[in-house]
Nucleic acid binder design. Sequence first.
DNA 1: TGCATATATAAGCAAATAACTATATACTTA
DNA 2: TAAGTATATAGTTATTTGCTTATATATGCA
Lengths: 114, 114
Amino acid sequence: MQQTKMEIEKAAVILKLLGDKTRLTMLKLMDEQTCCVCEFVQIFQSSQPSISQHLRKLKDLGLVKEERKGQWIFYSINNKSEYYSFIKPILDQLPDQDDKLKELEEKGTRISCC
Amino acid sequence: MQQTKMEIEKAAVILKLLGDKTRLTMLKLMDEQTCCVCEFVQIFQSSQPSISQHLRKLKDLGLVKEERKGQWIFYSINNKSEYYSFIKPILDQLPDQDDKLKELEEKGTRISCC
DNA sequence: TGCATATATAAGCAAATAACTATATACTTA
DNA sequence: TAAGTATATAGTTATTTGCTTATATATGCA
């Protein structure tokens, strides 16, 4: 069979996860660098529980990994994931989201937690 | 600025559409060949209105095009779509769905309408 | 013309989703 | 230890989604 190819049902599950503006932007950001939850909260002007829930969905599928550093938890893309090669070409077609982090740096709020 | 934001939002909309097993399989099939509604109904063992509604969503975004031939309406992927280059690499990672059409041919139900 | 077939649309409902508020947990520092 | 900060989880609710049934539209044919 096509072992190298993605099962279509699994692909649909992953694409549905990516089909949310917040999660998609988060993934694109994490494909570029590590971010902590409080940064996402600022970037998306969203509530902390909302961000946490998005991250959990991504983590449940193994798309991202977390690393605790003190009181902060840093998230980054899991390029060891069996699905990374599936989502990478998608992320590569999206515009860089670095400007969002730059804004935080300019406001000085990025360094506050990182 | 706004431009990039627009793009990622549009990408999320498209990915959400692809994030459904039925629609994703339909798109993969249509990337290989033209299909009519009654074929989809048989393949997915789904109701005709349900299939029609999925197709409409794909058509509303311009991902597929339709061509009437008599009483039948044939759908195929719209490779002129501005989003085709975005979804094509995704479809290419999915396993061929030709077997689904072959089953219909063996049952003789494909020729019934095509 | 009238009937059959193929497809689309509308309305209603149940399940899934995403956000919110409140609370719990984990860690840091005084 | 207590208080403060960062994050996660639980429970609730509003919205969205996908399906169903019923009906409308378009075409073909006798």
